[in-house]
Design a protein around this nucleic acid. Structure first.
Lengths: 250, 250
DNA sequence: CGATCTCTTGATTCTCCTCAAATGCGGTGG
DNA sequence: CCACCGCATTTGAGGAGAATCAAGAGATCG
């Protein structure tokens, strides 16, 4: 069931059959399905469980008093929200869906127990958490320094590569299910300007975007135009060396 | 020696005498002192150790190919950089000093060993890491949605409250040792505009800034003007309940 | 097939940037 | 002690990028 999640963790480490089974079990416990534009977690909620996105897109966002909304992270299939959140008393931001979403609600105790029994999983969850933090920092750079075109191009590169990591791309295209208003809230730009920036990217042939279908004919070119370097995604299979150190316990 | 650090951890939990002693030991191992505008960690370095700031200000930043620099985090006395970084192979951003800095270089093994023997410390390091992530998300909101005045005001609120947490404020004032250029790189604004924004904040009486000395006569007013809410700093002494659950093992 | 959401376009405004130069300030050496 | 230097701050003028406002065209969905 959590195939995207397993696939993502295996970008970093090798999981044994037992590891995989344990994760399947955790996910089976409590499945939820919600429509688009609904909240999964609300600011102020107590931090009792984590959510694993199985299908659809969600985001973490913060709404200011006057209505302005900033999306600070996208959650794609396979993403785990707030892995180690239980130390904090309450959520400081909300998590909401962008599309219809299927997700597993995992209690922190369950996840903790599994992680304790499966060191590989623990390690992989760590990696995932640190990569998320790294992405967050890169978003800060993106909003602070890059022009609208670079910024949006950078996001599209990131999303494409992350989707690729969980097997949700086909050749040079993937689905981009967000509205332009969502993109605007993520990039700190107005909807109108997102629209014009997309046109600019289209005009220069860097992307083809029809409906919800995004094609990136030349990823390297888009990366160059957006000052994108993928190192912050840490997809270099760092943990694969674990095979040597600690043989699979099947 | 690491008094600011201890003080910060105790915002969250109570440390036993043994805990404190263990941390003192770790910090004594390798002290380093560097001047302003030097790098402590460079992008691409292997992630072998963590740095604990004892005195002075540093920052995490990323430099784009064309020279633009974004500061993504400030490190104040008592801040620990890259606590659990060892899972990732290499650093994706650099850490540099803003002022002269004294810091302790702690090998990941040493820190890991101490944390393993002292569950309270482990817990506190977790809390610290999650709070850092929370701050990072708030910076994303700051850059994405807030106007120059709000943005800068928000930063000053955050810095003041963080300094307060480690005992580095006196009444309504504290030291702000950064140059306006540093602030500009942190806020994604130009130096010129930072200057004018500071004047605006001064003009409205929200701050008094003379040289390196910052006074915030009415913190609540500055918070209101900047749409600042301190919840994301999680200073609500979350872990104090640990006293009840797990008595001090002295 | 009308209602609603999303996307697109045009016109205008404003925030913030860039370029350029002046002023102030802390240190250093004559 | 003062002259000078380098750096940080301040000020001015003009311009670019993005926001806002408003309205029309296309989708999508009950």
């Amino acid at each position: 069931m959590p195939r995207h999640f397993l696939r993502k963790l295996e970008l970093f480490t090798r999981l044994s059959a037992a590891d995989r089974q344990a994760l399947e079990g955790v996910v089976g416990e409590k499945l939820r399905r919600v429509g688009p534009r609904e909240d999964i977690v609300r600011e102020g909620d107590s931090a009792s469980h984590v959510s694993l996105i199985l299908d659809g897109w969600a985001c973490r966002y913060k709404q200011l008093e006057d209505g302005r909304r900033q999306i600070v992270a996208f959650f794609l299939p396979g993403d785990l929200c707030d892995t180690f959140i239980d130390v904090l008393r309450e959520m400081d931001q909300s998590i909401g869906t962008l599309t219809p979403v299927t997700f597993a609600e995992i209690s922190r105790d369950t996840l903790g127990a599994v992680a304790a029994r499966h060191p590989r999983i623990m390690q992989a969850l760590w990696w995932d958490t640190l990569v998320s933090a790294s992405i967050q920092r890169e978003w800060t750079v993106n909003l602070g320094q890059r022009s609208a075109t670079e910024r949006l191009g950078h996001l599209l590169c990131e999303v494409f590569i992350r989707l690729q990591g969980v097997g949700l791309t086909e050749g040079d295209h993937c689905v981009l299910p967000t509205t332009q208003a969502d993109l605007a809230d993520a990039m700190g730009l107005s909807t109108v300007h997102i629209n014009r920036t997309l046109q600019e990217l289209r005009g220069s042939g860097l992307i083809v975007l029809k409906g919800r279908n995004l094609t990136i004919p030349d990823l390297a070119a888009l990366q160059a135009a957006s000052l994108f370097t993928p190192n912050y995604l840490h997809l270099d299979h760092v943990g694969r060396h674990l095979d040597a150190v600690e043989p699979l316990a099947v």
